[in-house]
Structure formats: structure tokens, C-alpha cells
Amino acid sequence: MIERIRGLGRSTLVQVGDLGRASLLLFQAIAGRSQVGVHWRLTIDQIYAVGVLSLSIIIVSGLFIGMVLGLQGYTILADYGSEQALGQMVALSLTRELGPVVTALLFAGRAGSALTAEIGLMKATEQLASLEMIGVDPLRRVVAPRFWAGVISLPILSLIFVSVGCLGGALVGVSWLGVDAGSFWANMQASVDFWNDVFNGIIKSVVFAVVVTWIAVYQGYDLVPTSEGIARATTRTVVYASLAVLCFDFFLTAVMFGEV
């Protein structure tokens, strides 16, 4: 029993220590002066790697999720004879929940794991140490551009996901199942509020972006530089980031939509 309590205490200390190191990493990476010109180009490179290269998976998943929502929503709403509310249902679920959350989960799997592996490999091949010896701070040179690229890319991906999803819902609802196009879009416009729904969704997405990218770069920077260590850290990135997204989603939803 005593041993168990002791173990609990020890693991708590390790967790708190991890959190402290992760915060320090983030702070050192993004605070302080940096050569804006050089780093801006690096950030653009990284936006390409984490954003542009994630486009296909985001568009395809967005389309299918929108179509599934259209199909499922139609069968349920048709029971109450209110098919015309389909647009409202599809758009609200996408803007408020599914858009930011699913995009963040896909992003953690596609881009987060790649970030961890890439930084981990740079550590394992001594590229980070080599940067240090050349007199360049790897936090600012390697970590900061990747962090910013993630924070910029994820909200954009999320917007694309939601838009494609709405179109997918319309495709199934209007073109295939015969919901009236006018009432589909009118209902959607009447119920979706830009500031309350779309904008709050964007805020969620920004929060998820910070959390996911932070976890990914920290896991990469802090891993044990062996092939086993990289494999483990990559897995941890996906697991931790996904859990963190779902957990933060609950709290953000409670704060944003709880009172209405």
C-alpha cells in the first residue's frame, strides 16, 4: 500500500517535471528575439510540410464526414418530417464540434507524429547537437518554426474541413435525397451564427493547434535518441495529443456553449 502511494507520488513528480520542461521548451522557443527574415522562410517551409501535405487527408475526410452526417441526419429527421432542418444539423455539428476536433485528431496523426519523428531523428543523428556547436539555438531554429507552422496550419485546415463537410452534406441531402436546396441553405443560415458558431470553432481550433503542436515538438525534442525511443515518442505524441484534444474540447464547449 505504502509502496503504491509512493509510486503515485513519484509518477506525479515526473509528470510535473515533464510539464515544467515542456513549458520551458515552449517559452525558450518562441520568446526572445529571433532573426525574423530567416525564420519566416523556415516557417513557410514547415507550413508546407504540416499544412499543405495534410490537405488531401483533410479534404477527403471532411467530404465523407459531411456525407455521413447528411445521410444519418436525414433518416432521423425524416421521422419527424423535418428534413429541411438537415442543413442546420450538418452545419452546426461541423462548425461547433466535428470540424475542429476531427481535424485536430487527423492532424495529430498525420503531422504531429511526423514532427516528433523528424525532430527525434535530428536529435538521434546529432544534428541538434551540431547546431548548438555551430552556435545556433536549435529551439529557435528547429522547434519554433515548426510550432508556428502548426499553429497557423491547423485552423486553416479546420476551416477547409468544415467547408468541404457542408458541401458533402449538401451533396447527399440535396442532390441525392431530394431535400429542397432553398430550405437546406436557408435553414443553415438562419441557425448558424458566425460569431457564436464559426468563430468559436476557429478559437477551438487554435487552442487544439497549440496543444497538439506543443506536444509533438516536445516529444520529439525530449525523446531518447534511439530508434526505439523515436517509435515510442511518436506513439506518445498521437495518444497524448488525441486525449488532450478531446479533454480540452469538453472544457471549451462547456465555456462557449454551456450557458446557451
Binding site: 543523428t125 546529432e126 544534428q127 547537437a129 551540431s130
Partner: peptide, 23 residues
Amino acid sequence: KRDALFTLRKRMGMLFQSGALFA
């Protein structure tokens, strides 16, 4: 301090085991 250390490191070169070229 960090900055002074980076200045000092300009006076040293280091060749890592794996070469550590930027891939």
C-alpha cells in the same frame, strides 16, 4: 550565459560521430 556560450562556440568546431549533416 547562453549568448556568451554561443559566441565562444564559434571558436570551436566539432565533428560528430555520424557527421550530423543537415539532411
